[in-house]
């Protein structure tokens, strides 16, 4: 079985999960508005005996630092075809106070083979890392995140339309920029009284603005594999008992335009079952179990293999084989 189409989504899920778990980790950083108070205490002996005296209390109010980072959550170019595509980003408030961020998606990144059209920017409202149409909140202009607490991160989706004239293997990037609503500027720039609780806000090392690029690659052709099984038991029913015959059907659908070379579908014979000799077939046409005489081969040890060869977008294939339950 060509496992690539299966592995990719799995990998993507793992990457997303890692980021989701890392998000709540709090960096050290005193929250804006914190009062740092200090009173020294002295003890001493004078002519009358031991005395204690306090100093006055000095207070420092911590100002608000404006910092933000944006990262792409896709872990690599997202394979897509003309039509809708979704890019995922994470926006993290690296400052020490609550802050919202204006989001600007730019599909015209230098070096793009083609440019997409940005349809919408959405927040991962249900936190599952996947854009859910009708569930995740679509932001309206000016697109702005909810207020994020210090060190809080939010997943942002940019939904784009890939033009119909994009060619296979062409790449396009989409830039997402996040700007602190309080203001951006050079590190050290200040916004008097604009921080939480009226403290001053000061632009941090990120300039209170950050960008990240998400990337799309046109893969006009992919293979969708689905596997089904039906069981017939020795008594005419469908129970999976010793002696039952299970028929596996692997359906391959070639999606997209163009062609793909050397498509080979392989599968293992499940444990505690035995391959039924001569049962391998492609689209209903029997294939021999021997290797080398035709497109198919099958054995308990090696499993089944069907070499379909060059395939074209829109093609569908169906591989079937039987096993008996030991």
């Amino acid at each position: 079985m060509n496992t690539k189409p299966l592995l990719r989504p799995l990998f993507a899920t793992t990457v997303l999960a890692t980021f989701t778990f890392s998000a709540p980790v709090m960096a050290e950083g005193v929250v804006a508005g914190t009062l740092i108070e200090n009173t020294a205490t002295a003890t001493y002996e004078d002519g009358e005996g031991e005395k204690t005296v306090d100093s006055n209390t000095v207070t420092v109010t911590v100002d608000e630092l404006l910092d933000v980072t944006v990262t792409s959550l896709d872990g690599g170019p997202v394979g897509t075809a003309p039509g809708q595509a979704v890019l995922s980003y994470e926006v993290t408030n690296q400052g020490n106070g609550p802050e919202a961020f204006t989001l600007i998606a730019d599909p015209a990144v230098a070096g793009n083979d083609f440019d997409t059209v940005v349809e919408l920017i959405a927040i991962d409202t249900n936190g599952n890392g996947v854009y859910d149409d009708g569930v995740d909140e679509i932001l309206t202009g000016p697109e702005t995140t909810p207020e994020l607490a210090a060190d809080e991160a939010v997943t942002v989706f940019v939904v784009v339309t890939v033009p119909g004239d994009a060619n296979d293997t062409e790449v396009s990037q989409v830039e997402l920029r996040a700007d602190a609503v309080t203001g951006t500027g050079a590190p050290g720039d200040t916004f008097a009284g604009a921080g939480v609780g009226g403290v001053d806000a000061i632009v941090g090392t990120t300039g209170a603005s950050a960008i990240a690029n998400g990337s799309l690659v046109i893969g006009l052709i992919t293979v969708d594999l689905t596997k089904a099984v039906s069981v017939v038991d020795p008594f005419g029913g469908t129970g999976a008992v010793p002696g039952s015959v299970a028929t596996f059907t692997i359906s391959a659908e070639v999606v997209g335009d163009g062609s793909l070379d050397a498509l080979v579908i392989t599968d293992a014979i499940p444990a505690d079952t035995t391959y039924v000799a001569g049962s391998l077939a492609l689209d209903g046409n029997p294939l021999t179990d021997a290797d080398g005489d035709d497109a198919g081969s099958a054995s308990d040890a090696a499993g089944i293999s069907v070499d379909i060869g060059t395939v074209n977008g829109g093609d569908t294939y169906e591989v079937t084989f039987d096993v008996t339950i030991d």
């Binding site: 914190t34 740092i36 200090n38 020294a40 205490t41 004078d46």
Partner: peptide
């Protein structure tokens, strides 16, 4: 922290303690 002996006598065993605020 500044300290000053305002008397005409010697002050002995002067100990000054300054707590470190949790935010620093």
């Amino acid at each position: 922290t500044n300290y000053e002996n305002t008397t005409s006598e010697v002050i002995r065993n002067f100990t000054l303690t300054n707590p470190m605020h949790p935010s620093v």
